[in-house]
């Protein structure tokens, strides 16, 4: 057998697990009789074990964080906005259940206290929140579990949960009573008197918050 051409080629095939049985026998017989090839074969095997013995190197400790902070950002945000837009019903349902377990129902049934979002200069009398004549509320007003009487004015939206807007006597006399109290309120007036309406009010508010975040 030619050492340089054939025997060395067989050694490499052996090291690649590529040797057929007759080839293996051929190589073994040659190695038994040729010390030069024996040495060569030994060196090749040792070379591989030396290379393999190089200890594995590890990525630096901060590697994962560095990669994550260098990823392009849009992909993630767009995805959530897209999902909300494509699944308005699922979104509303999810928020509904969140609030159900979040204690909205119990708040509705247990909390019968009159609450008002702004207390300054407002009068609360017998479950009625009064905006006195000389008072202008700047911003939105939310009244819960009580009626609201506006003698002054509200510079914003009004929401009444489980209550009514009471009209002053002189307003009631007027044929334009509906429009009359609107005149005192610069924004929208929402009356929420049913638990489901109240729920929807929360859902809408929460969603608006979610979208405001998403679009920022």
């Amino acid at each position: 057998m030619n050492c340089k051409e054939e025997a060395i080629a067989l050694m490499h095939k052996y090291l690649d697990d590529d040797l057929t049985q007759p080839e293996e026998k051929k190589l073994r017989l040659h190695l038994q009789s040729c010390s030069e090839c024996q040495a060569h074969f030994h060196e090749l095997k040792r070379t591989i074990s030396l290379v393999k013995s190089s200890s594995a190197v590890s990525a630096p400790e901060n590697f994962i964080a560095d990669v994550m902070s260098n990823l392009p950002q849009q992909k993630k945000r767009n995805h959530y906005i897209r999902w909300f837009r494509n699944h308005p019903f699922s979104t509303a349902a999810a928020v509904f259940f969140l609030m159900m377990f979040g204690g909205v129902f119990s708040a509705w049934t247990e909390d019968q206290q009159v609450t008002v979002s702004k207390q300054e200069n407002l009068v609360i009398q017998n479950q009625v929140v009064i905006v006195p004549e000389d008072v202008t509320v700047d911003g939105d007003l939310v009244v819960r579990n009580g009626d609201l009487r506006i003698d002054g004015a509200v510079n914003g939206d009004v929401t009444i949960i489980n209550g009514d807007i009471l009209e002053k006597k002189r307003v009631q006399d007027s044929p334009l009573d509906g429009e009359k109290y609107m005149a005192y309120v610069s924004g929208e007036v929402n009356e929420v008197n049913q638990v489901f309406e109240w729920m929807w009010y929360h859902v809408k508010e929460t969603l608006e918050g979610v979208f405001a975040l998403g679009n920022r």
Binding site: I8, H12, L15, H40, E43, L44, R46, T47, V51
Partner: peptide, 12 residues
């Protein structure tokens, strides 16, 4: 094969 032969010469 070639890489292994080169390394063999360098590491023998």
């Amino acid at each position: 094969h070639r890489g292994r032969e080169t390394l063999r010469k360098r590491l023998r």
